[in-house]
Design a protein around this nucleic acid. Structure first.
Lengths: 177, 177
DNA sequence: CCGAACATGTAACCTGTTACATGATTAC
DNA sequence: GTAATCATGTAACAGGTTACATGTTCGG
């Protein structure tokens, strides 16, 4: 049971930011925020969120206080050390600028290797999936707060870049007919 | 020990593509390709690569044959089922167009919440890190084959988008002097 | 011959996943 | 009262990580 005193995982940083900047005070609400977010990458599974909060509390980055009024539960807030850790996580330039895991980039060099007809069909499907995702993101925009909106706008820009990239691809390789 | 008959992990798909499209025939070479790639997201740890290849071989997607000439080792190649599985993985539109894990996007809504002076310094550092990464990627371009070049060009476009985004950010929030 | 690179693996660990379990509170 | 939602967790599992262990082959 290691405590994240040195560096936070991406999920732990996201949990801290949800509590501090987006005002989710119970673990359940943090979890649901992940489940319903149009731009955050985790499923919000209980088996990830509750242990993460436990670790952050053990490291004294999160303070817990039982809720007395209304529904019972545990109200979460950041300790001064928690705020400092969150800020360090937000600003870490190495972490923030690393490439991340991008399934599109990973495949981008491989579509060109496909048989022309297979390739044309694949690109068509990809274009369709990107367009659908774009529409989903755009319609979700007005329900979001500042933080989620910025993330979602970034996702939109990414999908637009993918869409442009797909359209720039030649419909088939040189060797046909 | 589940065999990946239904769907491949991103690492498994990348392993198949390294063997099939980039011509790495031993596990060691696949591993080193991950370690030295400027655009692939894994560390190429032995504890990930060797078990993945084992799973793919167990699922009959990879054929193994001992090398007789020169250094000894095991030559890997894709079975017909392996080629089909790879193609399905490459073309899967849901997987290929999912947002992925992007540390920059995750933080993009949070920099605006920082204290103006902290924020200005953070953005400066981020810009610097992006520029350095851009240069590193660009200089690596001429040593790469087609597949890796496409991936790296995508990474370059991504970092350029980040750079533009950072420059568009106002130096501080409205409430100062 | 000796160090570097080739080649293959295992063990302990970490952190995410799904699926299950339990109970309190609110809305109808 | 009962169904949905709020709220918190655990267990089994999956698939990565680092670190360690072992032996081979090539270059100088």
């Amino acid at each position: 049971m290691k405590t994240p005193s040195s560096s936070l995982t991406e999920l732990e940083g996201a949990v801290l930011s949800e509590i501090h900047h987006r005002g989710h005070d119970t673990a359940f609400q943090v979890r649901r925020a992940f489940q319903t977010s149009p731009s955050v990458e985790w499923s919000g599974s209980a088996g990830a969120v509750y242990p993460a909060i436990r670790r952050l509390a053990d490291a004294a980055l999160i303070e817990t206080k039982p809720i007395t009024t209304g529904r019972k539960g545990t109200r979460l807030s950041l300790s001064p050390q928690g705020i400092a850790a969150l800020e360090a996580w937000i600003c870490d330039p190495v972490r923030a600028t690393s490439v991340g895991v991008d399934p599109f980039r990973l495949r981008s060099g491989l579509w060109a290797t496909l048989d022309p007809t297979v390739r044309a069909e694949a690109l068509r499907r990809l274009q369709h999936a990107v367009d659908e995702e774009l529409e989903r993101l755009i319609t979700s925009l007005d329900t979001l707060d500042e933080v989620e909106r910025a993330r979602t706008e970034w996702s939109i820009d990414l999908q637009k870049m993918r869409s442009r990239w797909l359209m720039q691809q030649p419909p088939h390789r040189l060797s046909q007919t």
